[in-house]
Design a protein around this nucleic acid. Sequence first.
DNA 1: GTGAAAGCGCTAACAA
DNA 2: TTGTTAGCGCTTTCAC
Lengths: 337, 337
Amino acid sequence: LSTLADVARLAGVSTGIVSRVLNEDQSLRVRDATRSKIFEAAEKLDYTPNHAARALRRSRVGVIGLAVHDASNPLYEEIIAGAQAEAMSSGSMLVLADIDALATNEKVFKRVISSGALDGLVLQRAGTASDVLVSRIASERLPMVLLNDRTEAATGSVAADDFGAAHLATRQLIELGHHSIGLLRLTGDHMRANVRSAGWAQALREAGIEPDLNLVREGGQTVAQGYDGMVELIRARVRVSAVLVANVLAAVGALRACADHGVAVPGDLAIIAVHDADIAAHTIPRLSVVRLPLFEMGRMSVRLLLEQLEGHEPRHVTLTSPEPVIVLRESTGRVER
Amino acid sequence: LSTLADVARLAGVSTGIVSRVLNEDQSLRVRDATRSKIFEAAEKLDYTPNHAARALRRSRVGVIGLAVHDASNPLYEEIIAGAQAEAMSSGSMLVLADIDALATNEKVFKRVISSGALDGLVLQRAGTASDVLVSRIASERLPMVLLNDRTEAATGSVAADDFGAAHLATRQLIELGHHSIGLLRLTGDHMRANVRSAGWAQALREAGIEPDLNLVREGGQTVAQGYDGMVELIRARVRVSAVLVANVLAAVGALRACADHGVAVPGDLAIIAVHDADIAAHTIPRLSVVRLPLFEMGRMSVRLLLEQLEGHEPRHVTLTSPEPVIVLRESTGRVER
DNA sequence: GTGAAAGCGCTAACAA
DNA sequence: TTGTTAGCGCTTTCAC
């Protein structure tokens, strides 16, 4: 493979200018002829700068990490795509990691983090033990930004309008005529979970309904967890005519639980979920959901990280636009219109 | 952060031995005292070798890429986990990429590939245009191994027993008493697709049934594609009492299509799918599937890649154990027993 | 047993 | 406008 020196030799100049020309150094005045000689030579040799050498020299590798729980959750698809897009457009490479996998091997993780293999890290925490470990280790060595989770001041964060989404969904249920509205909340004590719960409560209060904690269960964020949560709720034999499920996948499981227990959806129980996904349009019945700007969130998270790498102070941004939007399908019953 | 030189200074030795001791160079005889001084110093300074410097020197970065279509497909979860595990245990880092995202930006992709940022690439192709582009570019610059897809000789490959899986599933259907058995095949003309189709055909022939191509449609590998495929099959008004769907997610969509068209599953139509996933146990009705050793496949793929990096010839391996296993749930009807 | 030194490919400060 | 040079942190050969 060809090196800078090869290009310089072929172009008949020194490596110094080749580097500066190829990197489009503005503060450089070159003869046009030289410039083109260099470009031609680079083209001819199919020159690509060596990653390691550049990283060593610049002490910046151009790689940023995105660590999530359960990377194959379809929800992350959009977040990842957004992050990917932003990373690409700034010439960086995005690498995906699973938080639990990272925590499994603390040794390796520490090495990766401390070795300068990454310039920074975007983290989607969920309050687990792995989270604590991973973010403690990472935060003392790398710039970080947190997704939907704003505990520390020293790291950036970006939050979607989780409150608004839950609020909107709940209000929709109320408008449909429901009074006893349950909640399958995200599992754990973290910002996303709490804020979505708060949106639910607030919407109820605004409608003059006192939120009833007996109608709340943990719904998690997987099909299986959603199933279990709904089963609990059904077994509790409380009066509910509608439920807000804080996560689509959980809602898929919840649907199954209803079917297993003879609860008709939407006849006996209306269901609406937070987040959209391919599958939500194909369940029986199809799921009504509220859609959040996940792509934007991914994009913003790496933008904030990049800012920090430029030396700016960490920022906290809450995405207010595009706004959460309701997608009405079958699980909330037919809309009269 | 501390460097090798720092450690050497603190231990009162030269960087040379520090490097060799820390890397456990066998061909080195050191005084035990020296060795411990070095370890202590490294410990004290919390020394971690710099990734870039080491990569530059060794011309090996310790990073291997895994590129798939649709990374958030739950099927990949297992493959990825397996690959991850193998990579970790050999001290490498696995980075995930989406083939279509890569193909989007040929420039960046080429740069990543040629810059030595990756030691090798594991690729899950599906016969798309992106695939062709990506694998052409990559194959001339990097060692590669293909998942379930064995076209070239110059790259390694690992295949699951797709034939066996499809064969097993189809035989199950036959044993259940079905004669008219349809197929929702994977979209595209690639090995996985063709081999699964072949397994279906072969099982039928063995039972004295001539495979009927009128009963075959494209089912793709997403919920939406499966939906469309099944709709086509239903609209064709052919006589089918059972269908093998080549992918679970597609089967989820197929279920929806049946519901939409008044086709009762398993009453009117039995369905069995290839691959298992969390969701298959939560659909209505629950999906019967055949499970393939995906984790093993991921693991083997990076093992083969690592072998190539050691200078061995590319190998092709077909995973025969563990064998495909049937998981009977509801979509094939109750098993008499 | 251990040290010295060269050099991987690149960038940036300084000279010319 | 271009060339020269030092050095990023590490590994490895060769000398002592």
